[in-house]
C-alpha cells in the first residue's frame, strides 16, 4: 500500500525535536509524532488523518530507560516484556500486546498515546469512501459518527491499549515535554474522553517517560486481557488490579478497551468497600461499550466482571 506523502523528520535530541515541532507550528504545518510506528503506519497506509510532516522520536537517545520506577517513552514493548526490572504486571501486559514481531517496534509511548479504534474508521480510503466517511476522518464532508449517529460531535472510538490500565493501578505519572516546557501528571489524568482528541497532549507536546512511585515494588496484582487469538488481537476488554502486598484496602482497579479512554475506577472501588463482586457490578454499571470492535458490546460489558474478578485474585 502506498504511504501518503509526508516529510519524515529525524531529530537526534529532545530539544531538536521541540525545535522542529515549534518551527512547523509557526509555519502552520500539521504533524504527527512517530515512535515505533506500529499504530501510525497502518493508519497512514489507509490514509487516515495523515499529516504532511512526521517527527520521529526513534533517533533520540536516552528515551528507552527501563527500570522499576521509570520507563522511557521509546522503550520497546519487547524489552519491557523481557525485562526483569519492570513491575511484573506491566511486563505481563506488554507481553500480551499484538505479536512478538510487532513488540520489537512498538513502544510504551505509542501504546499509551495509541489512536482509538473503530471498524467504521480503521479501513482503507476506498472502504471509508463507500460509507461516505465518518466524523473522525470526514475528509471535509462533515460526515456523522456511524456508531452513534445524529450527533455529529462526539467520536466514541475505542481505546484498545493494553498497558495503560496496569500503569494506572500502579499510580504512574506521565512526563510530557513541549514548546512550553515539561509537565508531569498522574496517568489517570492524561486521558480525555473523546475518541478524537484522546488525551491532553497539546500541539507540539510529546510524552517523555512515565515514572512510578518508589514503593511500586511492594505492589502486586495482575492484568487480564480478553481476546480471541493469543496473538495480534487488540484487547476486546481488559482489566488490571493492584494492591499493596498484604493490604487489600489499597486495591485499585482499571479497565481498558471499553470506551475511548482507559479508566481507573476509584469511585467504584471505594464505594464497594473492597468487595470484589460489588466492584465488578459497579464497573459493569458505569461502563457502556459501543459496537465498534470485533466482539459485541453486551458481551464485552459482561466480561468486564469476569476480568476484574480474575485480576483481583490473589
Amino acid at each position: 500500500m502506498l504511504m501518503p506523502p509526508f516529510e519524515l523528520h529525524q531529530p537526534k535530541s529532545v530539544s531538536e525535536a521541540c525545535t522542529i515541532a515549534k518551527e512547523l507550528m509557526l509555519a502552520g504545518d500539521e504533524f504527527d509524532w512517530i515512535a515505533g510506528g506500529t499504530d501510525l503506519i497502518p493508519n497512514y497506509k489507509w490514509h487516515i488523518n495523515s499529516k504532511p510532516h512526521v517527527i520521529s522520536l526513534a533517533g533520540i537517545d536516552g528515551l528507552s530507560e527501563i527500570s522499576m520506577t521509570e520507563i522511557g517513552c521509546m522503550a520497546r514493548l519487547h524489552d519491557i516484556a523481557e525485562s526483569e526490572d519492570v513491575h511484573p504486571i506491566v511486563s505481563d501486559a506488554a507481553s500480551k500486546v499484538a505479536s512478538s514481531l510487532i513488540r520489537r517496534n512498538a513502544t510504551l509511548g505509542g501504546n499509551l498515546c495509541l489512536d482509538t479504534r473503530c471498524f467504521w474508521f480503521n479501513q482503507t480510503e476506498e472502504w471509508r469512501s463507500s460509507i461516505d466517511w465518518c466524523h473522525k476522518c470526514d475528509c471535509g464532508t462533515g460526515a456523522d459518527c456511524r456508531v452513534i449517529p445524529n450527533q455529529n460531535e462526539l467520536c466514541v472510538a475505542t481505546y484498545q491499549g493494553d498497558i495503560a490500565p496496569t500503569l494506572m493501578v500502579l499510580d504512574a505519572s506521565v512526563h510530557l515535554i513541549g514548546p512550553d516546557g515539561t509537565r508531569v501528571m498522574p496517568l489517570v489524568e492524561f486521558y480525555k474522553l473523546d475518541g478524537m482528541t484522546r488525551n491532553v497532549l497539546q500541539p507540539g507536546e510529546f510524552m517523555l517517560k512515565i515514572t512510578l512511585p518508589d514503593d511500586v515494588a511492594d505492589w502486586t496484582g495482575s492484568y487480564r486481557k480478553l481476546r480471541v487469538r493469543d496473538s495480534w488481537d487488540f484487547p476486546e476488554a481488559g482489566a488490571a488490579a493492584a494492591w499493596k502486598k498484604g493490604d487489600r484496602t489499597t486495591l485499585r482497579v482499571a479497565t481498558t478497551a471499553l470506551e475511548s479512554i482507559p479508566r481507573r475506577h476509584d469511585t467504584e472501588v471505594s464505594e464497594s468497600n473492597g468487595d470484589v463482586k460489588a466492584i465488578c457490578d459497579a464497573v459493569f454499571k458505569s461502563t457502556k461499550p459501543v459496537n465498534n470492535t470485533s466482539l459485541p458490546p453486551r458481551y464485552r460489558r459482561n466480561m468486564i466482571k469476569v476480568l476484574i474478578k480474575r485480576a483481583c485474585e490473589e
Partner: peptide
C-alpha cells in the same frame, strides 16, 4: 466475514478476520 448493518464487509483485513495463530 462480517457484513455489518449497512451490508459492508466489516473486516477485510487479517486483524479482524481472525485466522488462528500458532497459539490456537
Amino acid at each position: 466475514m462480517v457484513y455489518g448493518r449497512t451490508g459492508h464487509l466489516q473486516n477485510p483485513n487479517f486483524l479482524e478476520y481472525k485466522i488462528p495463530s500458532v497459539h490456537e
